[in-house]
C-alpha cells in the first residue's frame, strides 16, 4: 500500500525528517508516536501533499505510483485522507457544498457516477450519526464557529463520507475529552477493515486504547528510532520518550 524510503524533508532549509523508512500494508493500522517537534505532523502533511515542505531525498510509493509527484487533489482522489490536527475554518464556503464537491471529485476520478443532492444527503445523514454530529452543521461554513470537538468529529465524518484507502489521523485525539475521544475512536474503528490502512499520529497513547494498532513507531528528531507492537505504546505511556533517545541509550 505505502512504502516510504529514506525520506528527507526540509522546511525553510531546516531538516525536519532525516531518513524515514516505513512500510504500511493493506488493512494495517500503524501508530506513529513521538515527542513534540519530532516531525510527526510534517510526515502527515508531506504524505497529503502540502507544498511548503521540501522533499530533499527519498521516495514514497503508494499503490505502485510515485506519490510525491502528485498534487494533493490527486492523492485525495486516489484514496489518501488527512484528518487535520487543526481543521481550517473557511468562512463563506458551505460545508455541504464542499463535501459534495469533494465526494464527486473522487467519484469522477474513479469513473463512478456522481451523487446527486438526494443521494448525497442520505449518505451524509447516515455518516453524521456515526460521529454524533448535528445535521445543522452541514448548512454552516466549513469548520467556522465549530467547537474543538466538533472540528475533530467533522474530520472523521468527512473521512467516513470519502471512504479513503489510506487515512492519516494527525493528532485527532488532541484536545478531546474522554467522551469525544470515544466517539472519534468508534468512528475510526467503524472504518477499519478490508484493505483500508490507517496511520495514527499521536503524542499520547490514549487513542490507542480504543484504536488498536498493528504496529507502533517512535519518531524522534526526524527518524524512526524504534518500531514495535502495541506494548511499545504502553511502555511509552509509562516511561515517556527520553529513555529512547540516542543520548539516553548511550
Amino acid at each position: 500500500m505505502l512504502t516510504i524510503s529514506n525520506l528527507h524533508v526540509c522546511i525553510d532549509g531546516k531538516p525536519i525528517l532525516r531518513g524515514i523508512d516505513l512500510e504500511v500494508g493493506p488493512g494495517e493500522v500503524h501508530a506513529i508516536m513521538g515527542p513534540n517537534g519530532s516531525g510527526k505532523s510534517t510526515l502527515a502533511h508531506v504524505l497529503a501533499g502540502r507544498d511548503a515542505y521540501e522533499v530533499t531525498q527519498g521516495t514514497v510509493v503508494y499503490d505502485g505510483a510515485d506519490l510525491l509527484a502528485m498534487p494533493p487533489e490527486d492523492r485525495a482522489r486516489r484514496g489518501i485522507f488527512l484528518a487535520f490536527q487543526y481543521p481550517v475554518e473557511i468562512p463563506g464556503v458551505n460545508n455541504a457544498y464542499f463535501l459534495k464537491a469533494a465526494l464527486n471529485a473522487g467519484r469522477r476520478y474513479r469513473g463512478l457516477t456522481e451523487f446527486d443532492a438526494v443521494e448525497f444527503l442520505s449518505l451524509v445523514r447516515e455518516k453524521m450519526k456515526l460521529v454524533h454530529l448535528d445535521e445543522a452543521l452541514l448548512k454552516r461554513s466549513v469548520n467556522e464557529g465549530f467547537s474543538g470537538g466538533e472540528k475533530k468529529r467533522n474530520e472523521v465524518f468527512q473521512m467516513a463520507v470519502l471512504e479513503p484507502r489510506l487515512a492519516i489521523l494527525d493528532e485527532t485525539d488532541s484536545g478531546l475529552d474522554i467522551d469525544a475521544l470515544k466517539i472519534v475512536a468508534e468512528g475510526v474503528n467503524r472504518l477499519r477493515g478490508g484493505d483500508r490502512s490507517i496511520i495514527v499520529v499521536t503524542h499520547y497513547q490514549r487513542l490507542l486504547n480504543h484504536v488498536l494498532p498493528d504496529a507502533v513507531h517512535v519518531l524522534s528528531e526526524g527518524r524512526i528510532i524504534r518500531s514495535g507492537q502495541r506494548d511499545l505504546a504502553l511502555e511509552l505511556e509509562e516511561r515517556g520518550y527520553d529513555w529512547l533517545r540516542p543520548n539516553a541509550l548511550a
Binding site: 481550517v88 464556503v93 469533494a102 473522487g106 476520478y109
Partner: peptide, 25 residues
C-alpha cells in the same frame, strides 16, 4: 489563504475549483 486552499485540495477538490470556491467565499 494557503491553508484553506490546501484543506480543500486535500479533500480532492481541484486547484482551480478550490480557488473559485474561496473567491466566491
Amino acid at each position: 489563504d494557503e491553508d484553506a486552499l490546501f484543506y480543500l485540495r486535500s479533500r480532492g477538490i481541484e486547484y482551480s475549483q478550490a480557488t473559485a470556491l474561496l473567491t466566491y467565499a
